[in-house]
Simulated assay, not measured.
Amino acid sequence: MWKEHYSKIKKEKHPPAYTLRKALDFIASQDNITEKTAIDLGCGNGVDTFALLENGFSVFAIDSNPNSLLHLQQNLASEHSKLLKFNNVSFENLEKLPLAYLVNASFSLPFCHSNQFDKLWLNIIECIPPGGIFCGHFFGPQDSWNSNSDMTFHNIQDVKNLFDKFEILYFNEISKKGKTLSGKEKFWHVFHIVAKKKHLQKQ
């Protein structure tokens, strides 16, 4: 499946995820960001990783597929080589994440096994400092892949509960018939989110 996905991406020029573009627009409007660090969870073909690099971020890219690193290396601009680190690891085996101003997870978190999702999410929350940004996607219960027991699905209340420590900057729920990048028909039920971590309230 992923080999087909990469070859499809290579033939077509895809823009970065809309949620990442929204996050980058928000970040561009801020003037107090001193350290542009990002984690790209499930970086895949690297479209979002390259967008982050081009916007001046140092990026820690993570993907369980070793083909992902090969794709990044083949397409990486020489001036960005020192700004990119890569870890070939599954979400289920991911150790503690380094602090990062931005965590991007474009269509990747649902592929974490449901038994391990809470641990992964806690890891994500802890690595984002107050004022930092999360952008990404969650699959809803109506998604046609919902019978896959190796994946994680959330209803709208579940998603909102995940972001109790965040201010929601962008939220869009989409339910529609469509195709995967490899051209297969499916029903998409997806929550698109950009959120900013709240500062702790002083007692």
Rank of each mutant, 00 (worst) to 15 (best):
L83M: 13
P16G: 02
F26R: 01
A23N: 03
D25C: 03
L97T: 08
P66I: 00
L24R: 01
P15F: 07
A61F: 06
L99G: 13
D40W: 14
D25F: 07
K22W: 08
A61E: 12
L69N: 08
L24P: 01
F50Y: 09
A51Y: 11
F57W: 04
N93A: 12
G56L: 00
V59N: 09
N55E: 05
A61M: 05
L24S: 01
G42F: 11
T19P: 04
L41R: 13
K36C: 00
E92W: 13
I27P: 08
V89G: 11
N32E: 15
N87C: 09
L84C: 09
I27D: 03
G42K: 06
S68V: 05
L83C: 14
Q30L: 15
Q30W: 08
L41H: 14
T37M: 02
I62H: 14
L24C: 00
S64N: 09
Q73A: 05
A61H: 10
S64P: 03
L53N: 04
P15L: 09
I62A: 07
L52H: 05
K82G: 07
A51F: 11
A77F: 01
L53G: 03
Q73I: 00
N55R: 00
L97V: 13
L72N: 11
L52P: 02
D25W: 08
V89N: 11
K22C: 13
V47I: 12
